[in-house]
């Protein structure tokens, strides 16, 4: 009944669950931490349902919160990098299918003729500008190296169009309907001296086929 004061060490050991100290107090602590009766587990199904729900849901807010908390700047930088990289890839990728696609669609009506012409007239170039090369094959040898030659502007522009992918987007519309008068006019407007070339470009397929 009259316990001679519980000392600190004994108290600490009792708190750790050791069977020591005043028996009545030990009994009380043991009772407090005894095995639970079944009714204390009533909420088990709800907890399990929540657990299942959390499994089926996609990665949840805490993840984002953690991300945001740990490195929102890093995350934003990464996002921007990804976006920029994607834009760059898309930009380059768009250039590649442009000429190819255009070439295919362009030459689809007269594929064999233009190809044969091209190979025959200017075999060293794989350009789709067969008529221009055909018209000025020599200028193709020094194409963009002398852009100052005004008289060569048609072939020069074409020659520039070929090696510089960035300009092919601009060349795209002219490629898409290069044989139509509108394109010739546009080209003529861009390079007045190439009016003849443009005009010759307009009936180009016919000229090619004729030749």
């Amino acid at each position: 009944m009259n316990d001679p004061g519980l000392d600190r060490d004994t108290a600490e050991r009792m708190l750790r669950g050791e069977p020591t100290g005043p028996p009545r107090l030990a009994a009380l602590l043991a009772a407090a931490s005894s095995e639970p009766p079944a009714e204390e587990l009533d909420g088990e199904q709800a907890a399990l349902a929540a657990f299942r729900r959390a499994r089926t849901l996609p990665p949840t807010q805490p993840h984002w919160r953690r991300l945001a908390g740990l490195g929102s700047k890093a995350a934003m930088t990464g996002l921007l990098l990804i976006l920029a990289g994607g834009a760059a890839v898309a930009a380059t990728a768009q250039h590649l299918p442009g000429p190819f696609g255009n070439r295919h669609s362009h030459h689809a009506p007269t594929p064999t003729i233009s190809d044969t012409l091209r190979t025959r007239t200017s075999p060293r170039t794989s350009s789709h500008r067969a008529p221009d090369q055909h018209a000025e094959p020599r200028k193709q040898t020094t194409p963009a190296a002398h852009p100052a030659h005004p008289g060569h502007s048609p072939s020069a522009t074409h020659g520039e169009n070929q090696p510089h992918p960035t300009k092919k987007t601009k060349a795209k519309p002219s490629n898409s309907n290069p044989h139509k008068p509108a394109t010739g006019a546009a080209r003529g407007a861009a390079a007045p001296t190439s009016g003849a070339g443009g005009r010759s470009g307009a009936p180009r397929p016919a000229g090619e086929s004729l030749e």
């Binding site: 407090a32 931490s33 639970p36 204390e40 587990l41 009533d42 909420g43 088990e44 709800a46 907890a47 399990l48 929540a50 657990f51 729900r53 959390a54 949840t60 805490p62």
Partner: peptide, 30 residues
């Protein structure tokens, strides 16, 4: 849970079941 429930009961009394259940929803989620 049973130990948690007993602990929470010392804090909130008879509302311990509800409070502990909420805590488990949180635990299950995180």
């Amino acid at each position: 849970h049973p130990r948690l429930l007993r602990y929470v009961r010392t804090l909130v009394g008879e509302d311990a079941e509800d409070v502990t259940s909420e805590a488990w929803l949180h635990i299950a989620r995180d």
